[in-house]
Amino acid sequence: MTRALTVAACCLLLACAAGNAARQRADSVAAQIQAAREQNAEACAPRELAVAEANLRFARIELDKGDSRRAEAHLDTAAPAARDAAAKSKDCVRPGVAAQERTPAPVAAAGPVVSAIDSDGDGIPDVDDLCPDVPGPPERKGCPLFSDRDGDGVTDDIDRCPELPGPKENFGCPWPDRDGDRVADKDDRCPDEPGSPDNHGCPGKTTALIIVRRDRIELMQQIHFQPNRAKILSDSNDVLREVADAIKAAPAVAVRIEGHTDNVGKRKENVKLSKERAEAVKEFLVGEGVEATQLRAVGYGPRRPIASNSTKAGRKLNRRVEFRMEEPKQ
């Protein structure tokens, strides 16, 4: 164990040392590039300078990621390119100067070629300005620090709709919605007719929440209660109103409201809770205008499961309210 730790510590130290050496080498290449730039390498040896600068940048990225091997590979390319750039620039003169003196270009003339046009007035001529229409500092090559005006998480430099929020999958633009029904055309089965999201953006056709069978009323959506309480949650009101309408339409029918639970907890308490929940449903239906004599509330607790209680999904199915038709009263 100790031996393994020692080996690991040695490896770590070696990696750190390699990283430091690479950083020192990167600094030395940077100095060479700077010297070449001062000799006007951008004009005299543009390719060599570009290769040196790009590879130095890549080496630094790799170093930041801790990959000194790949950083070294980039420095191996950058170093000779920087030397070549410096060498070529030494023998390079501006034609105007060459005609008069045949001497190397003075340091004062170094730097990017100056063009008269500077559209955004940021002091960087358009030819060297990566963002010629927007002012920006020289350290960002004339580009501004990018903002995100619409706050959609897609920065303005790559946002095709910088004033309108939109997902990055659509290049920062909102998804089109021709019929304005708030269902994007890509998800809208009827993109030219407004419709509800529940109906995939198509008009008409509402979905029934219950099916009235001969022996029972089947619910398409289960009735929800507060946990461990007999208080009905408001998202179940619609389904219960449909149940009420169905029972009111058949005054001769008697309905048994059955409360069921899973097997978690004490049996007695489950039976009590299921009974209270069935009573709560009865109360709601009576409130909706159903005759109380048509309804009977029963609590079965965990006695009549319809799925296995050993799984979460099964227990969820077992916690339910059912409506069963009873024999007509004589």
Binding site: N40, C44, K88, C92, R94, P95, G96
Partner: peptide
């Protein structure tokens, strides 16, 4: 504009 700017371009001797 190339003609004007090329005059300021430095070239290898």
């Amino acid at each position: 504009g190339a003609a004007a700017s090329s005059a300021s371009l430095a070239v290898p001797k």
